[in-house]
């Protein structure tokens, strides 16, 4: 008997393809998990895209199907906009994982801190970065360029 908890635990091991330090659970992508009572009933996973045009959706879907496959049931993954994904959905451990990867957690422009030295003497070089969800910053104290998660 596969439980919802077991599915969530497995999903917590699925890394985001663009920021591998953070899992899709800590990123707040998991909207709903449904496990049926009937034998061999599929596990339904509903996920929230961070961005509508996120190019990583297929990769995320494949990772989820691969990881849950070991539970021995069919897996159905659906992306939904039932609620909009926002940066408020990041978990506390997700925020720590971002910092450890050199990415400032989402915050208002005035509150962005350097993820390396915590300085607030930072400047935004570009609102747009290597992926849709990140901006480019520079720390004037430790002289380190870094990325910040865009609040959305």
């Amino acid at each position: 008997m596969v439980t919802t908890g077991a599915v969530l635990a497995a999903l917590a091991e699925v890394a985001d393809p663009e920021i591998p330090a953070i899992s899709i659970v800590d990123l707040g992508l998991v909207h709903r998990v449904e496990v049926g009572d009937a034998p061999n009933e599929a596990i339904h996973v509903r996920l929230l895209p961070t961005y509508v045009g996120c190019p990583a959706l297929d990769a995320i879907r494949n990772s989820v199907v691969d990881r849950l496959g070991v539970l021995g049931l069919p897996v159905e993954v659906e992306f939904t906009y039932a609620v909009p994904w926002t940066t408020d959905r990041l978990t506390p451990s997700g925020l720590s994982a971002l910092r450890r990867s050199g990415i400032a957690p989402p915050s208002s422009l005035a509150d962005v801190r350097c993820p390396y030295c915590s300085s607030t003497r930072v400047t935004m070089d570009s609102a747009f970065g290597p992926t849709q969800c990140r901006s480019l910053f520079y720390c004037r104290d430790c002289r380190q360029p870094f990325e910040a998660f865009k609040p959305i």
Partner: peptide, 20 residues
């Protein structure tokens, strides 16, 4: 260079909206 990144990101957003 920053604009190259920005415009590419904007274009990707619009293509994503179109796809949806």
């Amino acid at each position: 260079l920053e604009e190259d990144v920005a415009m590419t990101s904007l274009a990707l957003d619009e293509l994503g909206h179109a796809r949806a």
